[in-house]
Design a protein around this nucleic acid. Structure first.
Length: 323
DNA sequence: CACTTGACCTGTCCGC
DNA sequence: TGCGGACAGGTCAAGT
């Protein structure tokens, strides 16, 4: 389940692998996986367009495009400024972009022109020959390389839209602060996080962390890991936590996410990076998927419970239930 | 509004 | 071995 560290890992891979490439073909196997907005046209805005930069906001990826129909020189002129445009989802120009949400099982995997499907891909790749039966969208570039959008469960999507439309998406417009300021020179998330989480006083801290309008990019894995690191039971109502405890919790979110990015994210079942490789963060996880194993701090047995409708992992002694 | 639950999907795992 | 059902979880719509 791609959360911020996984999506950031994919973003870095794509930034290295596909920026500057020009789109030649698009094939859609599952119609719900791909849509164009009314203001855009696949033929005009995507085919022939050059990828300018890859941006991320929370768990959402954005592939900036410079359309060929801009008249050649304009498209190339934009390359020099493209990075600033594309890494800013609040950009107010009408250039197109591909907005991608991987949801639970989405993958974006790049294969170079020289890599024969099923043979020449990296040996440490978790995915085999492409396309496979989970391939929903295939984007071919002019040099023969290919970007595959795979999604076993079809919850993920790619939408072609203008940057103005992307910024106006409810998901993005209402999203809380980025937890890691160093990634995109975003502000310190603490004041905004505190003010937003205080609006949810009666809900559990786990539900609040999973709420993307409170803090961006946290999913089930990092919510559990952050709660453990701050000694907080996930069912604790927000109102029972002091500002200091909440600050420790945010620090926990930041710490586990930084460690995870350093290890290429978490591969629970499905996640792979832009080259099809798995992430190794779960080897360092303290509670997630560790039910029945000893707590690394106190030795008590990690248990799995249900909080906010989600499978939730805790150490019952480090994280005592709220009163 | 705040908050919870069900729907969207398909592959996997568990019990019979 | 096959089969039904529970389960996995990000987000949104619809419910209390």
């Amino acid at each position: 389940m791609p959360e911020l560290p996984e999506v950031e890992t994919v973003r870095r891979g794509l930034q290295r692998l596909i920026v500057g490439r020009r789109v030649d073909t698009v094939a859609v196997d599952s119609p719900r996986s791909f849509a164009a907005s009314p203001a855009t046209s696949v033929a005009r805005d995507l085919l022939g367009a050059q990828i300018t930069a890859i941006a991320r906001r929370g768990k959402v990826l954005m592939l900036g495009l410079a359309p060929e129909s801009d008249g050649g020189t304009s498209a190339r002129t934009k390359e020099s400024t493209a990075r600033d445009d594309a890494t800013d989802l609040r950009a107010t120009d009408s250039d197109p972009c591909l907005v991608v949400h991987l949801k639970m099982t989405g993958q974006l995997v790049f294969r170079g022109a020289e890599e024969h499907w099923g043979g020449g891909h990296p040996s440490d790749s978790l995915v085999d020959a492409l396309p496979d039966r989970s391939t929903r969208v295939t984007i071919g570039f002019e040099d023969g390389s290919t970007l595959f959008f795979n999604d076993q469960r079809k919850f993920g999507w790619i939408h072609l839209m203008t940057r103005v439309e992307a910024a106006a998406l409810d998901l993005i417009a209402t999203m809380g602060p980025e937890p890691l300021p160093e990634l995109d020179h975003t502000p310190d998330p603490w004041p905004e996080f505190l003010s937003r989480i205080r609006r949810h006083s009666r809900t559990s801290i786990k539900a609040a962390l999973l709420n993307q309008t409170v803090i961006a990019g946290v999913g089930n894995i990092y919510a559990d890991e952050a709660d453990w690191s701050a000694y907080i039971h996930p069912a604790t109502p927000v109102a029972q936590l002091s500002d200091d405890r909440l600050r420790e919790l945010l620090a926990g979110v930041q710490q586990v996410m930084r460690l995870s990015i350093d290890h290429g994210g978490s591969t629970d079942r499905n996640y792979v990076d832009a080259e099809g490789r798995r992430g190794s963060y779960l080897t360092f996880a303290n509670v997630f998927r560790r039910e029945g194993e000893p707590c690394r701090r106190c030795g008590a047995t990690i248990i799995k419970i249900r909080v906010a409708g989600r499978g939730t992992h805790i150490c019952p002694t480090c994280q005592p239930a709220p009163s």
